[in-house]
Design a binder for these strands. Structure first.
Length: 910
RNA sequence: GGGCCGUUGGCGCAGGGGUAGCGCGCUUCCUUGACACGGAAGAGGGCACAAGUUCAAAUCUUGUACGGCCCACCA
């Protein structure tokens, strides 16, 4: 960092015609070569600013929303770097999980079949999705290892493209510090955290009803659900009331025909029915509690039971409980201790064999009609059967109702009993839940109202976190199970590896104490076949990036991280899960601040997303407008606020970047003029001392030279801007910082530069000229640094014109409060600049109304100025007259509180 | 059903007790030696609606409407 009271610079080398073209590649390369954004390892925690960068899903393409939110983070990173922090700014790639699997299937025309052996010479049938077929059967089955290799291959190609785009955008990421959520280190970290959870009892296995996606054939977690409104129909079905053991006990049965009528949207689950349920206070059905009814077609006898969750005003007020139609069924089943009659398989089809309770031949025959069918077909078939048997009353009544889907799936979820791994997240433990709520309070949220989304979510948790997935491209569970003498795995005695063996793949690695050939044999072992949910790994991004596992010194200097930037829609997943993991392992927050960005809306105010088909690819934008311009658009939107996709804002940003180049060129031309071909060797000498020796040394801009009131006024106003912008950035309000800087900058260009132009050229003598020239240089230096986080390319370009090669603006000190303090006696009211601009505006108005050029001379003019501002106006009168080309200017008392043109006599035009 | 944001000139946004502000767009003018990828000067709204608090309300309170989102419900 260099001193800025005295600006160091070389003889300016300003291009004849400055341009934004090519700046991105030029500076990206320079920053890369010079290590401008490298993290200084060994920096104590207090001087580090660490960022938990969201690892983008590389299987998707980069879109404008990414550019938007990552720019916000980069502004913060650049600000703190200039404030003297060692910024720890890694980049991760989320390549682990389903999206990559799907992309690989389409891209290479393959599918994973874990039963196949590894083929080291395997070549995919095609690349690039050229032979893409909708039919999964056309995909070539390959081994899990081949499949994972293809996932890694494609991911790393995608990652290169992402990095290129990010670099083009100017993210000041330390590109020597990247990770993949599937790489060796991430796998080891994820497995280590899991083993610790297991040892502490926070991770556990359970055979239980599980939300199940039949397309992907995997369990999914509560956090990955979405509601989809679907068409369905209420089917009214009669259940025959069976004779009561004590027949005269029930005087007022609700049925005159000996039947109980329920309404269901899922008649195909009839064979899975285990009870009917009504509200305990429902007088219509009270008398039935404890009685048995017979399930139509299948002849199963099931009880009628009371439960508070049954809603009297829904349907007929009495519902059938199936194992399992929805999550309420699971609650009823669990709380009422009902039997299980599962009829759905992992593939979403009706199981071939009927469940217990269906034993009569005609019941078995009825079941046989459904066996093997999909849910959809089974429903059609059973409706025909019920109609035939007379158990269906009337026609099904169409309804639209919300159904739970996996957020990435396109078929409704089913609930299937399976063995799965769970991790405590407060869903079943009030004490932990309270602790996690307190973590949410402890965290600083930007904007603060995002906090309630976290609270809502934590308060609404109904189960622990299901972390196992029956997929292939993910981090495997680092466990094996002993196989007993009968060949059955012993699930409650998992075998774990020692921590130094991580990462392991239990599908190919052998547990300690066993031989390779004992796999799957009685008395041997078997590996857990599942992988972890992608969030189970990405919830550890702070531990991965900061190297909790293998670099305690780095971890100590970067964790808990300073900032977690992320999107609002993954508070319940990524943010919450990260808090859970750090709470369990480190007993702390994983980060102190969360910056939540909004969505990008297209011009029709809809959320931009791939499925909407309205996504604009960012690279085209970056090339068309320039990265600084696109960043400007992003920076104009506040955290947590949805923003419209606005090319017009990008044009404004581009105009600003060009203006920065041109205004700087102009200001620097005076510095050159001030000391042509020479610079003082002694920093304490005046920059303008013509006797100073010529050298390639440094030239000082001495604030003491700034003597003119207008110049001092401008610098005083700028000082306030510095204060405001700094305060705003400290509180993550980049919009405000940009706004005040930009507003000042336009005044600086339109008014100040115009006002001092002729004086800076020497019209008022050497001292007055030096004052203007030095003020221009000082202001330029400060303004460039204020803009640097927002427009890194244009500012770096300008900086390079007058500073030593390699002396990046992005490593300079952020303007401080002292830098522009000109000494108490040299302060001047910022009002001078304002008034001078106002009076100049009045003179311009005279010309504009006369429809003449601004060059036109004014013979004489009178401008009214409010009394309290008249002294300020007088102080800048000479500059105003010069800028307005006015020979005779009278400053009169204004009748109003505004500056107003009273009269003007224009010279004849030639 | 519970909750969180928002509603300010044609569009995008800022302001947040004293009587509206920025950018784009629009109109008119200006090819001035930093910039035509420019510059200057203008026109245009009374801040969704209603009631209240106050000397004074875009600004505070309450309610309503509309838009967006989160959570819950899912027979």
């Amino acid at each position: 960092m260099s001193q800025h009271r005295h600006l160091s610079h070389l003889q300016p080398t300003v291009p004849e015609r400055p341009s934004l073209d090519g700046l991105e590649n030029k500076w990206d390369q320079a920053w890369s070569e010079q290590g401008t954004y490298a993290f200084a390892a060994g920096t104590p925690r207090g001087q580090v600013f660490s960022i938990d960068t969201p690892p983008p899903t590389v299987s998707g393409s980069l879109h404008v929303g990414h550019v938007f939110s990552y720019t916000h983070t980069d502004i913060v990173a650049r600000f703190w770097r200039m404030r003297g922090k060692a910024v720890f700014y890694p980049m991760g790639w989320d390549d682990n999980g389903l999206p990559t699997e799907r992309r690989v299937q389409n891209y290479y025309g393959v599918r994973c079949d874990p039963a196949r052996p590894y083929d080291p010479d395997f070549t995919p049938p095609f690349e690039g999705g050229a032979g893409k077929s909708k039919n999964a059967a056309d995909q070539v089955p390959i081994s899990r290892r081949n499949f994972v290799e293809l996932c890694q291959k494609l991911s790393s190609e995608d990652e290169k493209q992402f990095e290129a785009s990010w670099r083009h955008l100017g993210l000041s990421v330390d590109w020597s510090n990247t990770y993949q959520t599937i790489d060796r280190h991430a796998r080891a970290t994820s497995q280590l955290a899991f083993l610790r959870n297991l040892a502490r009892g926070e991770a556990y296995q359970q055979l239980a009803p599980t939300l199940w996606d039949v397309t992907f054939r995997t369990a999914v977690a509560q956090a990955e659900l979405k509601d989809v409104v679907r068409k369905g129909a209420y089917h009214k079905i009669g259940f025959k009331l069976l004779e009561a053991a004590d027949a005269d006990r029930s005087p007022a049965l609700p049925t005159s025909d000996g039947r109980v009528y329920i309404e269901t949207t899922r008649p195909e689950l009839l064979p899975a029915c285990v009870a009917l349920v009504a509200h305990p206070d429902d007088d219509r059905y009270k008398a039935l509690f404890g009685r048995q009814v017979e399930v139509p077609l299948f002849g199963t006898a099931v009880p009628v039971v009371p439960h508070r969750l049954a809603e009297p005003d829904k349907g007929s007020g009495i519902a059938m409980i199936c194992t399992f139609g929805d999550v309420t069924d699971v609650i009823w089943w669990r709380e009422l201790h009902l039997p299980t009659r599962a009829i759905l398989g992992w593939d979403g089809r009706i199981l071939p064999e009927p469940p217990l309770g269906i034993d009569r031949p005609e019941a078995k025959a009825a079941y046989g009609e459904l066996a093997g069918l999909t849910v959809f077909s089974a429903q059609k078939r059973i409706v025909e059967m019920l109609r035939g048997s007379g158990d269906l009353v009337g026609e099904p009544q169409p309804v639209e109702h919300p159904v739970k889907f996996f957020e990435k799936g396109d078929k409704p979820l089913e609930i299937i009993p399976t063995r799965q791994w769970y991790l405590s997240n407060g869903g079943t433990n009030a004490e932990l839940r309270q602790e996690l709520l307190e973590r949410g309070d402890e965290l600083k949220w930007y904007p603060d109202f995002m906090r309630v989304r976290y609270q809502n979510w934590v308060e609404g948790l109904t189960s622990d976190w299901l972390i196992s997935r029956q997929r292939f491209f993910g981090v495997p569970f680092p466990v094996w199970y002993p196989v007993d003498q009968f060949g059955h795995p012993v699930y409650d005695r998992p075998i774990v590896p020692s921590e130094d063996r991580l990462p392991v793949d239990p599908a190919t690695d052998t547990p300690d104490g066993y031989q390779l050939d004992q796999r799957g044999k009685p008395g041997g072992f078997i590996g857990d076949p599942d992988v972890m949910d992608t969030w189970a790994t990405s919830s550890l991004t702070p531990q991965i990036a900061c190297h909790w596992r293998d670099n305690p010194a780095l971890f100590a200097s970067t964790f808990p991280m300073d900032l977690r930037p992320q999107a609002q829609d993954i508070i319940r997943t990524w943010l919450f899960a990260t808090v859970v993991r750090a709470d369990l392992e480190q007993h702390s927050l994983p980060f102190y601040n969360a910056a939540i960005s909004g969505f990008i809306l297209d011009p029709d105010r809809k959320k931009m997303s791939k499925s909407q088909g309205n996504v604009v690819t960012p690279m085209g934008l970056l090339e068309e407008y320039g990265s600084d311009a696109v960043r400007y658009w992003a920076a104009s939107a506040r955290l947590g606020t949805d923003a419209a996709f606005e090319p017009s804002q990008m044009k404004v940003g581009r105009r600003l970047a060009i203006k920065l180049l041109n205004a700087s060129k102009f200001a620097l031309s005076f510095l050159e003029q001030a000391a042509p071909g020479r610079t003082p060797a002694d920093r304490n000498e005046s920059a303008l001392d013509p006797a100073a020796p010529v050298s390639r040394g440094e030239m000082a801009l001495d604030p003491a030279v700034v003597t003119e009131p207008l110049d001092r006024s401008m610098l005083t106003a700028l000082r306030e801007v510095v204060q405001t912008a700094t305060d705003a950035l400290v509180s993550y309000d980049h919009t405000r910082a940009l706004e005040v800087t930009e507003t000042f900058f336009w005044t600086f260009c339109d008014d100040y530069i115009e006002l001092v132009k002729s004086r800076a050229h020497g019209a008022g003598g050497a001292a007055a000229a030096a004052s203007a020239q030095t003020a221009l240089g000082l202001a330029l230096s400060v303004l460039l640094r204020l803009f640097a986080p927002f427009q890194p390319f244009a500012t770096e370009e300008v900086w390079s014109w007058w500073h030593q090669a390699g002396e990046s603006i992005h490593r300079q000190a952020w303007p401080g409060p002292d830098e522009l303090s000109l000494g108490l006696t040299a302060q001047a009211s910022p009002a001078i600049l304002t008034v001078a601009g106002g009076v100049l505006g009045a003179l311009r108005k005279a010309k504009s109304e006369a429809k003449v050029s601004m060059r036109t001379e004014i013979t004489s003019a009178t401008v009214g100025v409010p009394a309290e501002l008249s002294a300020a106006a007088v102080a800048a009168k000479g500059d105003i007259m010069a800028a307005g080309r006015t020979a005779e200017l009278t400053l009169a008392a204004s009748a109003t509180d505004a500056i107003e043109l009273v009269s003007a006599v224009l010279a004849e035009q030639s």
